[in-house]
């Protein structure tokens, strides 16, 4: 099932390393959001917001959301490499090599996760000391878990589109249509407790909400009580979307 995984993973990293501008963009964007948007919003809404009855610095509140935004951007970028592979004939060639289609997808996912983890810890390393935030060392596994589940989940969400849609214009339009609501209708920018009922329903069928919540539990220790339930929901989302993406690639016309 995973025949050729190591060499395909190496291929992904080597090809990515030749496009460092594309690899660095999600990290730079994350830091921009954290400092420009975060600090700007803090000026507008006040230094602190209330989360589960406790006051939290807005930039600290935003940091997990920014990491999650980086994860979805990296997943999208990995999805584009699949589209390029198909467009440039690489996918057809690779599928005639002694590697399985599952290994091909797993290599892309592993690359997504590698870059997502680097991005998450760089944001934490660069960003949090500057805003006087700290990280709960005991909760680092939660940061790792949400990054891993979120990375697989978002890549699996984009992959069927990348393997089926031929037109670049249509693909960009569809991706934007998915990406923006996922970011906006989640707990990324604001606590859901104050949001209208319909918004909360939409947010709770959005895997981004769970990714951000688990990350937030890891970074600032918020929402510890319901975190196991959130991990389970994100796990189910991830497995379902991964299954769809594998079937989709097998059925895709190359």
């Amino acid at each position: 099932m995973t025949k050729g995984l190591a060499s395909l993973y190496y291929r992904e990293l080597r090809v990515m390393s030749r496009q460092s501008w594309a690899t660095l963009t999600p990290l730079i964007t994350s830091l921009f959001y954290l400092f420009l948007f975060g600090l700007g919003m803090r000026t507008l809404i006040g230094e602190e917001i209330f989360l589960e009855g406790e006051s939290v610095d807005y930039v600290l509140f935003l940091a997990p959301g920014v990491i999650a935004m980086g994860i979805i951007s990296i997943a999208q970028s990995s999805g584009w490499t699949l589209w390029n592979d198909r467009d440039w004939g690489m996918l057809e060639e690779l599928l005639s090599c002694p590697v399985s289609s599952s290994a091909y997808i797993l290599a892309k996912i592993l690359c997504t996760l590698t870059l997502s983890l680097i991005q998450a810890f760089l944001v934490l390393l660069i960003g949090l000391p500057l805003i006087k935030g700290g990280i709960f060392v005991a909760n680092i596994p939660l940061v790792l878990l949400s990054t891993l589940l979120g990375g697989v989940c978002f890549f699996s969400l984009f992959m069927p589109l990348m393997s089926r849609i031929r037109s670049t214009n249509l693909l960009v339009a569809v991706m934007t249509l998915i990406y923006l609501p996922m970011i906006l209708c989640s707990s990324m920018f604001y606590p859901l407790e104050e949001a209208p009922g319909w918004f909360r329903i939409v947010a709770h069928i959005n895997p981004m909400t769970y990714t951000v919540d688990i990350l937030r539990a890891g970074v600032i220790g918020a929402g510890d009580q319901q975190i196991l339930g959130e991990i389970l929901v994100l796990f189910i989302f991830t497995m379902a979307l991964f299954g769809v993406s594998v079937i989709s690639l097998r059925k895709a016309s190359i």
């Binding site: 291929r11 080597r14 090809v15 030749r18 496009q19 390029n84 440039w88 004939g89 690489m90 057809e92 060639e93 005639s96 090599c97 002694p98 590697v99």
Partner: peptide, 17 residues
């Protein structure tokens, strides 16, 4: 696939490498 090698009609290369 373990027994074969293929050269496709269309150029299949890593363009940024």
């Amino acid at each position: 696939k373990e027994k074969i090698g293929v050269m496709l009609q269309n150029t299949a290369l890593e363009r940024f490498s």
